[in-house]
Design a protein around this nucleic acid. Structure first.
Lengths: 227, 227
DNA sequence: GGTGTTGTGGAACAACGTTACATACGCACG
DNA sequence: CGTGCGTATGTAACGTTGTTCCACAACACC
């Protein structure tokens, strides 16, 4: 079996599918990717996938080595498809925020695939282009060396955190008490009443994202640039 | 079947186990929690669990309603066990950082349970005490109303992000190229060479956490307090 | 003692990932 | 033109999973 990611398909010129079934490793991975993107990882069953390709399960076991390796291949293919878009903004702060938003939007547009990629820990390869995009703006902002690296990682991890956190948030998972409702019962003299009142309103994740990153970026650039 | 979380166990005084098998809803949930905490969610199978309790699977299906509801019960029980520890530090910044660290450490000490809780979206109930702890320090720092709420959520979400992000990081998942290795091939004139050099060293998540939160907290308090 | 709720056990269903084995195809070589 | 070998597919099965149906024992209560 070929099975290996960048496989040497034996003594065969690469990219020649042939054979009567028409099922290629390419097609298997593509179909799997489509299924995952549409219905999530759990919806991907080797049997259904093979049926959808009009073959018996063992065939796709021959092309890709197993479910795990198939998922790896899907993530790999997904990574290849990601393209960088233009960075907007004039000030370094605005440009960094723009990159951060892009990363988050991209992850959100393919939530199911992002989940798989993160679950399998293939995030580094997936995140490298974004790291570079961030690092560019940070360099442009005047940060150097260790301080620049720390700023890059700070922003990257905070953005990544929001991405991974999103599927865990109430709107995504109903049938449980939301944070706002829990705050309704809170009475604490050590807490500002106005704060409590605000916490009882539902949290808009987008707003928190914007506010957090604006604050963080400003601070990273300011603190590090001056001394 | 009782099945419901806060169940009315029919006409029976609450807390009287009886019956010859000795298997109670309590014991089932406890055992499930122990298994998950030790070996992760995937290691929890209804059959193994029942075998470990010396019963046939249908029994535990009677006590808890099914796997999903069992997991909910486990998370609920886990939430009850969480206790707040003392907050350290003199300045508001130090105290906030202390709370943030505590939240992260707590999640890390029970990584498997935290993962389940987040996966099932029961984070709000789990995070409420921590939200309150944060809100207290923020109130003490002088922030009020909407600004205080935004600061609370910013810190909470960043901490939560680091928690959820941790299992996705390279050390947790080997057998793939780490971020540092990928940076080895990066050559970009728009990037500070010192930055690239630093990015080639492995990232210490703890350091990033400390640096990010120190920066963020300082900025949240400073920006909001002055005007 | 009968009666009914409260549990337990046995057996089975459907679906899953995966494997061992046999078989058909198609190209390359003699 | 035939033959062989690697390539690709099909058949059948194993072991595991969550879950349900049904029968039956144990206890509480009237």
């Amino acid at each position: 079996m070929p099975a290996m990611s960048t496989a040497t398909r034996a003594r065969r010129a690469p990219g020649t599918p042939r054979r009567r079934s028409g099922v290629t490793r390419e097609r298997v991975v593509d179909e799997a990717l489509a299924i995952i993107e549409r219905d999530g990882v759990d919806a991907l069953s080797m049997r259904k996938l093979s049926a959808q390709l009009g073959v018996v399960p063992t065939s796709i076991y021959w092309h890709v080595g197993g479910r795990e390796q198939l998922l790896d291949a899907v993530v790999e293919r997904y990574t290849e498809r990601l393209v960088a878009t233009a960075v907007r903004g004039r000030t370094p702060e605005a440009r960094l925020l723009s990159v951060a938003r892009q990363i988050r939007d991209m992850a959100r547009d393919h939530a199911n695939l992002t989940a798989v990629a993160l679950e399998r820990g293939l995030s580094p390869a997936l995140a490298l282009p974004m790291q570079i995009a961030l690092a560019r703006e940070i360099t442009a902002a005047g940060l150097r060396g260790k301080r620049a690296a720390r700023a890059t990682r700070s922003i990257l991890y905070v953005v990544g955190g929001f991405i991974v956190l999103e599927p865990c948030m109430p709107p995504a998972i109903p049938a449980q008490r939301r944070s706002e409702e829990l705050w309704a019962d809170v009475e604490d003299p050590a807490l500002d009443p106005g704060l409590i009142q605000e916490m009882r309103k539902p949290a808009e994740l987008d707003d928190v994202f914007e506010h957090t990153l604006t604050t963080l970026i400003a601070s990273l650039l300011a603190t590090e640039r001056r001394p």
